[in-house]
């Protein structure tokens, strides 16, 4: 497939020419393999009670044990799965939604565009985190609800950029030529416009993942996360609720937060490199 090939080309280019991008790729490969190999890497089942609670770090439990005697290192390792799952799922759905809305607004123009742009303007002005908090509080704690809430706010930025890109591509001569020979709107969007805006969309999946992971962690930290899914934010919530720092268990707080920051930096570095590769002018539009 063309898309896969061009993504491979982009990754190759970034790895060779963009040091920051390469650093991002290395971070993501590292955390990605932790997530994939979690069941092999984790010394214990993160849900099993394997030791007395509040154990300080020891050779058996390098990060100690939590308030009910689960191994914190295993929790952190499995947390990579939950956090990456939430981040990538929310970012992918948001991007697809934003792509569709942006293509429609940009291609059809007129009233359709004005209506959609109006909604986009309003959504951008809404203070998202407080509203996300209140939405999550009402919807109830589950991983899918959190993804839903993230998508509600995630598509807006993508739609805005895709819309303006579509607007300019629509005016190109090859699109006009295609119209002249009688192609349908649907055909033009799919054959001519989508391939040009797809790389931007890929960059947005990557950048969107950062904010999705950070927001999920924030919600979990406030006690709005899915209590059955051990994400890094959830681990921090329990550590904070049990005053981990003042029991001498500072690693319980330090390590999960470090992983959140690390993954966030990895996605941001890679996303910025992809944006640079796709369209250097676009970055801070």
């Amino acid at each position: 497939m063309g898309l896969v090939k061009s993504i491979a080309n982009a990754v190759k280019y970034i790895a060779l020419h963009n040091k920051k991008g390469l650093f991002g790729i290395v971070i993501l490969l590292f955390v990605g393999s932790i997530a994939i190999l979690a069941d092999k890497l984790a010394p214990y089942d993160p849900y099993a009670i394997v030791a007395p609670p509040f154990q300080p770090p020891s050779p058996e439990h390098p990060l100690g044990t939590n308030d009910i005697g689960q191994d914190i290192l295993s929790e952190v390792i499995y947390g990579a799965r939950v956090s990456l799952y939430v981040g990538l799922t929310a970012a992918s759905i948001s991007t697809i939604l934003g792509l569709v809305v942006g293509l429609i607004a940009g291609y059809f123009g007129g009233y359709v565009d004005e209506a959609i742009s109006g909604i986009i303007d309003i959504m951008l002005a809404i203070p998202s985190l407080p509203l996300i908090i209140i939405l999550a509080a009402y919807l109830g704690p589950s991983l899918n609800n959190i993804i839903l809430v993230l998508v509600i706010f995630g598509w807006v930025g993508v739609a805005r950029v895709i819309r303006s890109q579509t607007l300019s591509i629509r005016e190109r001569t090859y699109v006009e030529a295609s119209k002249a020979v009688g192609s349908s709107s649907f055909g033009i969007i799919f054959r001519h416009i989508l391939p040009s805006v797809a790389p931007v969309a890929v960059a947005y999946v990557i950048l969107g993942a950062t904010s999705a992971i950070l927001t999920e962690a924030s919600l979990s930290f406030l006690g709005l996360g899915d209590p059955t899914a051990k994400s890094w934010g959830q681990i921090l919530y329990h550590a904070q609720a049990r005053n981990a720092l003042y029991l001498g268990l500072w690693l319980w707080v330090f390590v999960p937060g470090l992983f959140i920051a690390l993954v966030g930096a990895g996605f941001t570095l890679l996303g910025m490199a992809i944006e640079d590769y796709v369209n250097p002018k676009l970055r801070y539009a």
């Binding site: 720092l245 707080v253 937060g257 959140i260 941001t268």
Partner: peptide
């Protein structure tokens, strides 16, 4: 530092 969670730094 862009992706460092507020509350985590605050806790530390």
């Amino acid at each position: 530092i862009y992706a460092v969670p507020y509350y985590w730094l605050a806790l530390l």
